[in-house]
Design a protein around this nucleic acid. Structure first.
Lengths: 231, 231
DNA sequence: ACCTGAACACCGTTCAAGT
DNA sequence: ACCTGAACACCGTTCAAGT
């Protein structure tokens, strides 16, 4: 369970320029940099979705030739890895640290994780197939520490972490990609009713119409934590 | 929470040919059909992964021109939808029906679901963004019925179903895409050790080295079912 | 009813070259 | 050290045409 490819970093070795840049022309773009590329990639992904990110469009937005990107970045995969991790920083629990409240801490971090990903819907479906960047590892570390302090045994620890991971990823990916208009969902429910002999139970419970995603997420997370709690 | 696009079916209206086909030439391909296209798409996806499926390659394998496919199929999205659902049929619980064992039934169905998806690793990452086909709906229906009979209240039913869905999807997508050689994972762990000041807990628990995926899945599912069980 | 090739508007990346 | 354009080997799909 690990990162996809090791981080073969690209050619350049970031020197810090120790003097004012060659006097920024008023209208012209700032020089290309890994940071600008990543930030612009996130913009583009937010605006156009996963298929909307192409190297050509990215270069366009940056006001450079396509091939200039490849000086700063290995390839398109690399851009995805960087954009993803850049979006998952965790600022920690709210101001007042409540000692002993391990459940509250876990819930806060995981709800924040989900919220961060939903702010950038492309990130959810990207995460499972990409390298684990520092921000992701920090969250896993925090989760691990909190659960361990809460009394989860070493034998259960990894299972607990991966269970929570699975739950959060599943919920977020699903939420991000099933995000439909009310009309679309009503249509789906109607198609379902058309087959009510086949699917009576989920038709009756209106499974496909339920749209309290946030509530369902918290409640389900509660169930899982109930099961994980040291007895 | 519903299917992406309604099923605008394509032009042709499948007539069943009521007479022996025009005498199958020995070496030549059987005529194109929706079924052949889907079956071949699954083959191609199994062999080459998600990016390996292109309309051109698909047509090649079928011995036809690219554009011939578009008679039977709306577009590439349609091929994905059909390939996905075709792989998720559920044959039901093992021969002897154990009444009362709702937990066993749920575990069997979900482990089978996961196994079906892992046999076709592309299916996991495809599922959340696609229409819900009949095989998927059947599984949800079965799940719903079993939980309801087990005593899960109507108020908890949808949350329970989506929680299990989330868990299974998260686990399967993660498993399918983090499937690395032992060496790769060892390298990841080593990179981690290099930063052991940053990630001491997950380094110690060897989170990234753990490879008992099946065991972790079952055990975590057990925790979740513990939490969901009617009290 | 079913199949076709040519054409259009795109892709990511290699390469050899410029400053 | 950083940026570039031309070129290569691909894509999905529209269209007008064939049988």
């Amino acid at each position: 369970m690990a990162a996809k490819r090791s981080g073969s970093r690209s050619k350049r070795s970031h020197r810090i320029s120790e003097w004012p840049q060659p006097v920024q022309e008023p209208g012209s773009e700032p020089p290309l940099s890994r940071e600008r590329i990543v930030a612009t990639a996130v913009e583009l992904l937010d605006a156009q979705g996963i298929d909307g990110l192409t190297m050509r469009r990215l270069a366009d937005r940056l006001g450079s030739g396509v091939m200039s990107l490849y000086w700063h970045v290995d390839n398109k995969e690399d851009v995805f890895d960087l954009a993803l991790d850049s979006v998952l920083e965790y600022r920690g629990p709210p101001q007042i640290v409540q000692y002993q409240d391990w459940r509250g801490e876990v819930v806060h971090m995981l709800e924040d994780w989900r919220a961060s990903m939903l702010r950038h819907p492309w990130s959810a479906s990207l995460l499972p197939r990409r390298a684990l960047g520092p921000n992701i590892l920090s969250r896993l570390e925090l989760l691990s520490k909190t659960l361990s302090r809460a009394g989860v045994t070493d034998a259960d620890l990894n299972v607990a972490i991966w269970s929570l991971w699975n739950y959060v990823m599943g919920a977020t990916i699903t939420r991000a990609s099933f995000d439909l208009s009310h009309d679309d969902r009503a249509a789906a429910q109607q198609r379902l009713e058309h087959f009510s002999e086949c699917y009576p139970t989920i038709e009756r419970s209106r499974l496909l119409l339920d749209d309290d995603w946030d509530g369902a997420f918290s409640k389900g997370l509660g169930f899982l934590l109930d099961g994980l709690s040291p007895k």
